[in-house]
């Protein structure tokens, strides 16, 4: 399976997730139990992704002091400002500065 096919599959799946109730199931409601689960999809998957991209092929974490410092600073900035740009700028700046120092 090539990357483009993968992108097409994700594209179709994404479209369906956006369209299914509008096109086909307008009179159905999502059961409350499913709604409860859906709200945890974003935090759980994103957190899993953060770890997944930091692990190398051998399964060990490719993470050091600069990365940890950047996560702490970026997380605190996101919490304080609720702003993606500030989070990215502070996180990357701390990463570069700490990396230069250690």
């Amino acid at each position: 399976m090539s990357f483009v096919i993968a992108a097409v599959v994700v594209g179709i799946g994404t479209y369906l997730s956006r369209a299914i109730f509008i096109l086909a199931l307008a009179n159905r409601r999502i059961p409350d139990s499913v709604l409860v689960m859906l709200q945890f999809v974003a935090p759980a998957v994103l957190a899993a992704l953060v770890v997944a991209v930091l692990i190398d092929e051998s399964g060990s974490a490719a993470i050091g002091i600069p990365e940890l410092a950047a996560f702490a600073a970026g997380g605190a900035t996101a919490y304080k400002t609720r702003n993606h740009i500030a989070t990215l700028v502070v996180g990357m700046t701390v990463f570069w500065v700490v990396r230069a120092l250690v």
């Binding site: 935090p43 990215l88 990357m92």
Partner: peptide, 27 residues
């Protein structure tokens, strides 16, 4: 490295209750 930072920002900014923080930590 901007990718995990961006994801972390998305998580933290979306946290409006402790159960979501638990979902993120367990994930």
């Amino acid at each position: 490295f901007a990718v995990p930072i961006l994801f972390l920002g998305l998580i933290v900014i979306g946290l409006d209750k402790s159960s979501k923080a638990a979902a993120a930590l367990v994930g």
